[in-house]
Amino acid sequence: MQNIKIVAAGDSSILIEFGSEINPEINRKITSTVQLIRAQQIEGIVDMIPAFCSLLINYDPRIITYDRIQSRMAELVKMDVKASAQKKKVFEIPVCYGGDFGPDIENIAANAGLSVEEVIKIHSSSDYLIYMLGFLPGFCYLGGLDERIHTPRLANPRVKIPAGSVGIGGSQTGIYPLDSPGGWQLMGLTPVKTYDPDRETPILLEAGDYIRFVPIDRGEFDRIKALVDRNEYECVIREGEV
């Protein structure tokens, strides 16, 4: 494990940086640290935001000062904890790539020196681990994007991106769960709702699950969308070994 850095993020938050790369090992360390903090019931901790390789903790400075929480966390991250292996659950997410749904797909292809078809093939041929949820309700940060199609974020973020948009931001890919501003390069749209406040389980996916993107054409998109709108669509879920 690399050097772990603990820094202030204002007067009511502290950030623990576990490393500076996206890898499953670092991510598991964060998951276990979160569990450890919960188990220890440290007074004054208000909320936690686990991310790829960092953990932001919101605390109440009336109850615990920066110095105290800093030294407490420094002790805690030294502890060695192991996460257990499990079977993986793969959600198949249909995506209609390109056209109006993916206005940046040519950018992505040009940046990679590939054809649009190759970009789609690469993007839809691996299982992506959900490292964390964040940014928006149900927004999944996925790991494992093929290096060939890494693409920088837009210099100036868009003010509105439609729900269901699938895009690439740097070394990450993902789905926008609802209309939102954002800086990712858009490559397609899924008719599946990863977040639906009116559904029994508003959030479809969980950290630790996997996603596989499946290319579909416009006709299939419309067919699935009609099912989704009637609440009759169910995602295909495969099981596999990690």
């Binding site: 204002g10 009511s12 938050s13 991310a51 960092s54 932001l56 964040g134 974020r153 210099a155």
Partner: peptide
């Protein structure tokens, strides 16, 4: 070099600076 980072948590009052 770049202001892109690997996404992490945001606090109330965070001052972020994108590439612009």
């Amino acid at each position: 070099e770049t202001s892109d980072i690997i996404s992490d948590g945001i606090a109330f009052g965070s001052v972020q600076v994108p590439s612009h």
